[in-house]
Simulated scan of single mutants.
Amino acid sequence: MHTPLGATRRAAIIVLLAAALIMSLRTAVEPTRAEDTYPSRSIRLVVPFIAGSPVDALARVVAQDLSHRLGHTVVIENQSGAGGTIGAKAVAHADPDGHTLLFIINSHLYGLYSDPGYDPIRSFAPVAAIAQWSHVLVVRADFPAADLPGLVARAKAHPGTVTFGYGLNTPPQILGETLKHVAGVDIRSIPYRGGAQAVQDLLAGRIDMNFGATSTLLPLIREGRLKAIAFTGAKRSADLPALPTVAEAGYPQIAFDPDAWAAILAPAGTPATVVGRLNREINDALGSSELRASLVKLGYEPRRMSLDELSLFLAAEARKWPPLASAAGLRTN
């Protein structure tokens, strides 16, 4: 018995419609993963410090490389103020979709602000470690001391007259305050919105001393416009091999090794697949010879961590820094 041609066509159409229905149901049950469509637009990387600072420069180098890897622009957005808490709060309350990230340094965990509007650990998802570094202690070129013991002796002989400038809620602040505490000296502290402003006043002779990143201060030291008197690293700086470490100068208490590091966070609740991809891309970038060379040239030591390693590291640092800040006499705001 022969089946009419029309019936055959109708049966084929029914089969196709059924297959299409099954596929649509499967798509509804198994939606596209966030990682498969991420990123879908440009990414904001919030740097909670002023433009032109050493931390800003580090973030921009990383953002440029990451833009190429992700296929979308990573835009630096400086939101400075209140020791970095304004920018951190903005990211903590941003949509957790991976398109807003936070570039932090270890001062994020100092605990100097009692109610910043976020929890420095629970409000964020760890994404990637970036780098670590130490600082150079410099004084103005005509300061009457050539080394750290000489600086301490000058401060003891003239209490309250030596001035120290720093960016508020930054590693240089805790370094300077710790030095004052362990040396038992009265050095007047002068806060700035950022370290770059402190360096400008140091060059102008309006303040006497500053702790700064090698990348910023090395040209000024070589030009003779500033005088380097100590390095905070565990070993001497490759760029300034004749410069003693703070430990060699008699003050191992300010050799935190490292005294500064940087990392990237996302708002809590960001999909694990997105965070995982960012961690892989950033670690790959930090392993490339090109980015490593750029960071080393700026005075930074690249640092790669898995997500588990970074989570444990941040938890340990959150326990480490508040007591140090308290011992140094830094007040909670």
Rank of each mutant, 00 (worst) to 15 (best):
Gly212Val: 08
Arg236Glu: 09
Ala260Glu: 08
Glu248Gln: 15
Phe211Glu: 01
Pro252Gln: 10
Phe231Ile: 03
Ala238Ile: 10
Asp259Ile: 10
Ser215Ile: 15
Thr232Arg: 07
Leu240Trp: 09
Pro244Gln: 04
Ala242Asn: 09
Ile221Pro: 01
Ile229Tyr: 03
Ala247Gln: 10
Leu218Gly: 03
Gln253Glu: 15
Arg225Tyr: 01
Asn210Val: 13
Ala260Tyr: 11
Ala260Trp: 08
Ala230Phe: 02
Ile254Gly: 04
Thr216Arg: 04
Asp259Asn: 13
Gly250Asn: 12
Ala260Met: 15
Glu223Met: 04
Thr232Trp: 02
Ala234Pro: 11
Asp208His: 06
Ala260Phe: 10
Leu240Phe: 11
Tyr251Glu: 08
Gly233Leu: 02
Thr216Val: 11
Ile221Asn: 00
Leu240Lys: 06
Tyr251Gly: 04
Pro241Glu: 13
Ile229Pro: 06
Ala249Phe: 12
Ala238Leu: 14
Leu217Glu: 11
Asp239Gln: 12
Leu240Met: 10
Phe231Val: 01
Ser215Leu: 15
Val246Gly: 08
Pro219Gly: 06
Leu243Phe: 04
Pro252His: 07
Lys227Pro: 03
Leu226Phe: 01
Trp261Tyr: 10
Thr232Cys: 09
Ala247Asn: 08
Ile221Thr: 00
Ile254Thr: 08
Lys227Trp: 02
Ala213Ile: 06
Asp257His: 14
Ile229His: 03
Thr245Gln: 13
Ala242Met: 01
Leu220Phe: 11
Val246Asp: 06
Leu218Asn: 01
Thr216His: 05
Lys235Pro: 07
Ile221Cys: 00
Ala249Asp: 12
Arg222Ala: 03
Trp261Ser: 15
Ala249Gln: 12
Pro252Met: 08
Ile229Met: 01
Thr214Gln: 12
Trp261Ala: 14
Gly233Ile: 02
Ala242Glu: 05
Val246Arg: 02
Ser237Pro: 08
